[in-house]
C-alpha cells in the first residue's frame, strides 16, 4: 500500500461511481476521456487509473480495466456500503494525498457533485463543474476544461495552473461511451478506510425508490414535447409516438413547472443531458437551456409551426407544421413501416 510514484508517472484518475454494486456508466465515459487526455498529455508517462469505493465491489475493478484503467485503487469497507459524503470524501482525499494524481475526473451525478467538491476542498485544489469538453492546453500542458455558464449563454474554459490534482466533473452522456476491450488486466491496489461507523454523523434510515425507472439519459430514442402542446392532453400522443419508436418521453422545462409531468422527464441545463440516437422535438422553441441538454443527439428531428424557431438551427431535419397533424401521421407511417404491410412496399 505504499505509494511509489516514479518521478515521471503522471496519473490521470477517474472516480468509478457505483451504487449497490452497479457501476454508473459515466465512469466508463470518463475513462474514455482520460485515455484521450493521457495521449495528449504525455503518451509515454501518463497513466489512466480508477478509484473505487464501496463494500464488496472488487468485480467492478475488472470492468474498469476493460475500459482502460491500468490500475484501480480500491477501498472496500462496510462503512462504504451506502454513499455518504464524509467517509467517501475522507477515503478518496487520502488516496489523492498519497498518490498525487495530476488530473482527477468525477461524474457530475448527484453523488459525484456532492463528493467532488468535498474532495477539492479537503485537498485545497480547483474544481471545474459540469464540463462539456476536456482537452490538454498544448502550450501549458495543463487541463483545459470548458463549461457553460450564465444559463448556457456563455462558454468558459477554466484552467488550474498551480495546484494538483486538476479536478473536473462531467455530466453523464456529455462524453461518448468508449468501446470496452474484450479482455484486459490491471493492477488492483487495496487501501484501508480507517474509519469506524460511529465516526460517521449521518445514517440512512430508508430509501423511497422512485416509482418509475425512466433512465432518460441512456435512452436511444426520445420524443420530447414543449409548450407547443398547449396542455397536458397532448402528452399521450407523444408517448404513443415514443412507444412506436421504442423510445421514451422527454419534455422542456415549462411542462415540469406547470406540473404536467414529473421532473425526471426534463431535458436541458437544469434537467438531464441526453445523447440519444434520435431526438424528436415537438413544439419546443429551442432555448439555449434546452439545447445544451440535447444537441449531442445523433439525429434531431424538430417539429414546429414557426419556421423561425431556434430549434431548427440544431435540427438535422425540420418539419414546419402543426405537431397535432405531424405526430399522428408519424405514428401511422412508423407503424406501417414496421408492420411491413402491403401499401408500404
Amino acid at each position: 500500500m505504499t505509494a511509489q510514484p516514479t518521478q515521471q508517472t503522471r496519473r490521470i484518475w477517474v472516480f468509478i461511481e457505483q451504487e449497490d454494486g452497479a457501476p454508473h456508466p459515466v465512469s466508463w465515459e470518463l475513462l474514455g476521456a482520460a485515455r484521450r487526455l493521457a495521449a495528449e498529455l504525455d503518451a509515454e508517462h501518463a497513466v489512466v487509473e480508477g478509484v473505487l469505493l464501496g463494500h464488496q465491489v472488487a468485480p467492478i475493478a475488472q470492468e474498469a480495466f476493460r475500459y482502460g484503467a491500468s490500475r484501480v485503487y480500491l477501498i472496500d469497507d462496510p462503512v462504504l456500503a451506502l454513499y455518504r459524503n464524509l467517509p467517501y470524501a475522507a477515503g478518496v482525499s487520502r488516496l489523492v494525498q498519497s498518490y498525487q494524481p495530476e488530473i482527477f475526473l468525477v461524474g457530475a451525478t448527484t453523488l459525484g457533485r456532492d463528493l467532488a467538491s468535498a474532495i477539492a476542498t479537503r485537498v485545497q485544489t480547483g474544481l471545474t463543474a459540469d464540463c462539456t469538453e476536456l482537452t490538454i492546453d498544448p502550450k501549458q500542458q495543463i487541463l483545459a476544461a470548458t463549461r457553460p455558464t450564465f444559463g448556457g449563454n456563455l462558454m468558459a474554459t477554466i484552467l488550474c495552473r498551480q495546484r494538483r490534482p486538476q479536478m473536473a466533473t462531467v455530466r453523464p452522456r456529455v462524453l461518448p461511451m468508449p468501446q470496452p476491450l474484450a479482455e484486459a488486466a490491471g493492477e488492483l491496489i487495496r487501501e484501508p478506510l480507517d474509519m469506524a461507523e460511529e465516526e460517521v454523523p449521518v445514517r440512512r434510515l430508508r430509501l423511497i425508490p422512485s416509482q418509475q425507472q425512466l433512465n432518460l439519459e441512456y435512452a436511444d430514442v426520445i420524443v420530447a414535447g414543449g409548450r407547443g402542446l398547449g396542455g397536458p392532453d397532448g402528452l399521450p400522443l407523444l408517448e404513443e409516438l415514443a412507444q412506436a419508436l421504442g423510445g421514451v418521453l422527454g419534455v422542456s422545462r415549462p411542462l415540469v413547472d406547470a406540473g404536467w409531468v414529473s421532473a425526471e422527464h426534463q431535458v436541458g441545463q437544469t434537467g438531464k443531458t441526453v445523447r440519444p440516437k434520435l431526438y424528436i422535438a415537438a413544439g419546443i422553441s429551442g432555448a439555449v437551456q434546452h439545447r445544451v441538454g440535447m444537441s449531442g443527439a445523433d439525429f434531431i428531428l424538430a417539429i414546429n409551426s414557426d419556421p423561425q424557431a431556434p430549434i431548427f438551427q440544431v435540427a438535422d431535419l425540420g418539419i414546419v407544421g402543426d405537431l397535432y397533424q405531424v405526430a399522428p401521421e408519424l405514428i401511422r407511417q412508423v407503424r406501417a413501416l414496421q408492420g411491413g404491410d402491403d401499401h408500404v412496399r
Partner: peptide
C-alpha cells in the same frame, strides 16, 4: 482561487 478563466466565448 486555484482556477482561472482561460477564455470565454459564445457557443
Amino acid at each position: 482561487s486555484p482556477t482561472i478563466v482561460g477564455k470565454a466565448f459564445t457557443p
